[in-house]
Computed example of a mutant assay.
Amino acid sequence: MEARPIAELRAVTKRYGVVTAARGLNLSIRPGEFLSFLGPSGCGKTTALRMLAGFEQATEGEVLIDGRVVNGVPPYLRPVNMVFQQYALFPHMNVAQNVGYGLNQRRPRPSRAEVAAEVERALQMVRLAGFSDRRVWEMSGGQQQRVALARAIVNRPKILLLDEPMAALDKKLRHEMQIELKSLQRELGITFVLVTHDQEEALSMSDRVCIMDHGQIAQIGTPEDLYDRPQSRYVADFVGRSNFIPAWVMGMVGDHIRAEGPEGLSFTARTGAPLTIGTEILLSLRPEDIQLALAGAPDGHPMRITHRIFLGEHTEYHLSSSAIDHLVTVVPRGADAVLRNLTVGTEVAVCWREGAPLALTRD
């Protein structure tokens, strides 16, 4: 029997005057999972998070936490804690005072010894043991983020809400903190709900990702599902990178479709929904699924290199032909040196395995 959701949004809509920030959200969040809201600015992801936190109230629908409707319940009476993008630490307090602030607001108030013990336990969890007396303004951005996390987990919430907490960190530190945050979540067993616009952040840490688009949920799934089986161009384009080629359904080949693209190019593609012959579709083709070869390779489509971008672990090539206006592929650092060092203007050939393209209906 599946466990009861720790939180739910049931047909939730949020309006600010004539502006609808979230529309008809239906979502069940599982106990102990790491779920991310992912999308561009203004898509409604932060609004959804703030309605779970209680900082915003739903205009329509119900918000439930641990089986209880919490519409109208203020944040401090909900079993949740939130880590804000700017951390919201008190500069006049040291680390221990910041972390213990929420404990000292409880009634009846715990003893000083109890607060000190809980604060030390939380600091050990975020690897800041021995920092109790440090002033927060003396700490790095990564350390401040850990203080904010310690302050949030010290109250042992049922749900920890994170509003883009790593946005201010540099890329290397952000990657390190992603690993630490996921490890902490596993150790605590608390449900984490993250808001981010960074797809790498969402994919690397989440059990499930909720893709938002114009206030609505575009698709929910595991990172692998969203990457391998996006249900729309929007999701395919937002999660990872993809090339899009217009085509038409010509027939079926087992579980795949046979499609015809520009200038008679033939494709065998995967599909997530039944498609009829003659349907106009878009083929989504990931850059890493495209093999680059020297001009004249058998079964290759001739193209010309328009841009070459060296990115360290791989080289990115932008290609063009009369049939396909723009195509991006990547060549790993460990590939043949000839393929890694092709120059702009060089004629090449590209191919892809059968079933690599994914057929999407045109939006």
Rank of each mutant, 00 (worst) to 15 (best):
M252Q: 15
R186T: 12
T59Q: 03
L265V: 04
L327D: 04
N104Y: 02
G272Y: 04
V344G: 01
R127E: 14
P74R: 01
E288I: 05
Q57A: 05
G278F: 00
L161F: 10
R308I: 07
W248S: 15
V63K: 06
E187D: 13
W352R: 06
I179E: 11
H314T: 11
D163T: 12
V350R: 04
S111T: 15
P31C: 09
I190M: 12
T329N: 01
D237K: 13
V338Y: 00
R107H: 15
D213Q: 15
L169V: 13
M252C: 10
L173W: 03
E118P: 06
G278L: 05
T346K: 10
S242F: 01
R241H: 14
M303L: 13
V99F: 02
F37K: 05
Q231H: 13
L162C: 11
A150P: 12
N81T: 13
G251T: 09
R208D: 03
T222R: 11
G240I: 03
V63Q: 06
P274M: 01
Q105T: 13
A323E: 07
L285G: 05
L128Y: 02
L342G: 07
V99D: 02
L160Y: 11
V147S: 04
M166K: 12
R362T: 13
M93C: 03
A323Q: 04
M82D: 04
Q97L: 00
P165K: 05
R106S: 08
C43T: 06
M93G: 07
R340G: 13
V95I: 04
L9Y: 08
K172G: 06
A167E: 03
P108W: 01
D163K: 06
A11M: 00
P110V: 05
F131Y: 15
Y101N: 07
G44D: 01
V193K: 10
S284W: 03
I190C: 14
Q185I: 12
F192V: 10
S28K: 14
R23F: 01
A337L: 12
A53S: 14
A323R: 01
P74V: 01
Q291L: 13
F37I: 11
L265C: 11
L283E: 03
D228C: 07
K182A: 13
S320K: 07
V80R: 02
W137R: 15
E347P: 14
M139P: 11
S28H: 09
G215V: 09
E33I: 08
I217D: 04
R10E: 04
T315D: 02
S41A: 13
A117R: 15
E347Y: 06
R362G: 02
L161D: 08
K171P: 15
G102K: 03
D163R: 08
F192G: 11
M139S: 08
R10W: 00
W137L: 14
L52Q: 05
M205G: 09
Q199H: 04
I324P: 07
T191C: 12
A349I: 04
L160C: 13
